[in-house]
Simulated scan of single mutants.
Amino acid sequence: MSDLTRTFAALSDPTRLSLVETLIRRGELPAGDLVAEAAISAPAISRHLKVLREAGLVEQRAQGTHRFYAVRPEALRAIVDWTMDHRAFWSTSLDRLDTLLALDPGEGER
Rank of each mutant, 00 (worst) to 15 (best):
residue 25 R to A: 14
residue 30 P to Y: 01
residue 38 A to W: 05
residue 12 S to A: 15
residue 62 A to N: 01
residue 25 R to V: 07
residue 101 L to S: 09
residue 33 D to N: 10
residue 26 R to E: 09
residue 22 T to S: 12
residue 16 R to I: 08
residue 51 V to Q: 09
residue 88 A to V: 13
residue 102 A to Y: 03
residue 23 L to R: 11
residue 45 I to Q: 07
residue 53 R to Q: 14
residue 4 L to V: 03
residue 63 Q to Y: 01
residue 11 L to T: 08
residue 68 F to N: 04
residue 102 A to K: 14
residue 32 G to Q: 07
residue 70 A to T: 04
residue 24 I to M: 15
residue 69 Y to L: 10
residue 89 F to Y: 14
residue 14 P to L: 07
residue 36 A to I: 02
residue 12 S to D: 11
residue 73 P to W: 02
residue 70 A to L: 04
residue 22 T to H: 07
residue 36 A to R: 13
residue 95 D to M: 10
residue 59 E to M: 08
residue 8 F to K: 06
residue 29 L to H: 04
residue 35 V to H: 05
residue 52 L to H: 07
residue 21 E to P: 00
residue 62 A to K: 00
residue 12 S to K: 07
residue 74 E to T: 10
residue 51 V to E: 03
residue 106 G to Y: 12
residue 10 A to M: 06
residue 84 M to Q: 12
residue 56 G to Q: 02
residue 34 L to S: 09
residue 37 E to I: 04
residue 47 R to N: 09
residue 97 L to C: 10
residue 51 V to I: 15
residue 105 P to Q: 09
residue 75 A to K: 06
residue 51 V to P: 02
residue 9 A to H: 05
residue 99 T to W: 09
residue 97 L to R: 14
residue 81 D to R: 15
residue 38 A to P: 07
residue 89 F to P: 00
residue 81 D to L: 13
residue 69 Y to F: 15
residue 29 L to C: 08
residue 24 I to K: 11
residue 108 G to T: 14
residue 94 L to K: 13
residue 57 L to E: 04
residue 89 F to I: 08
residue 39 A to S: 13
residue 75 A to S: 14
residue 36 A to M: 05
residue 36 A to W: 01
residue 96 R to V: 12
residue 38 A to R: 10
